[in-house]
């Protein structure tokens, strides 16, 4: 496949990235979705909180965290977010279907814990 568009490389020697500038997770990383019940506008569905999964993809570019946006805070609230894969059998104990079936969802870094 030809190169489709330039992809950011890791910083070369001497280049110091800002805090949170680089994604904290990489494809293949094992994660757990945070278990929190804050009041207000939150986008992580309750049925996935506490579930463990795998980072499939860093979705570029980083976006304004829509949970901050929900409160009118846009400046400085860009966050990395990821396409996460969670096996259906992990989401539902009594799942009927193939053990390979999976749920995919995009989740902001603020909700991900390293396993």
């Amino acid at each position: 496949m030809p190169t489709l568009k330039p992809v950011a490389a890791p910083p070369i020697q001497g280049v110091v990235p800002a805090l949170n500038e680089l994604p904290g997770f990489s494809p293949g990383d094992a994660i757990r979705v945070g278990v929190r019940s804050p009041i207000g506008h939150y986008r992580v569905p309750i049925y996935l909180r506490g579930k463990t999964g795998t980072v499939v993809q860093v979705i570029e570019p980083a976006m304004v965290d829509n949970e901050a946006e929900g409160f009118g805070k846009n400046a400085g609230s860009k966050r990395h977010y990821y396409r996460i894969s969670i096996p259906m059998t992990q989401v539902w104990a009594d799942y009927q279907g193939s053990p390979r079936d999976e749920l995919r969802i995009e989740i902001f870094e603020t909700w991900l814990e390293r396993v």
């Binding site: 569905p45 304004v64 999976e102 995919r104 995009e106």
Partner: peptide
Amino acid sequence: PDDVEVRVSDSTSAV
């Protein structure tokens, strides 16, 4: 078929 993976994508954010 059972040997085909069903992959459900739940859209919740900017995607």
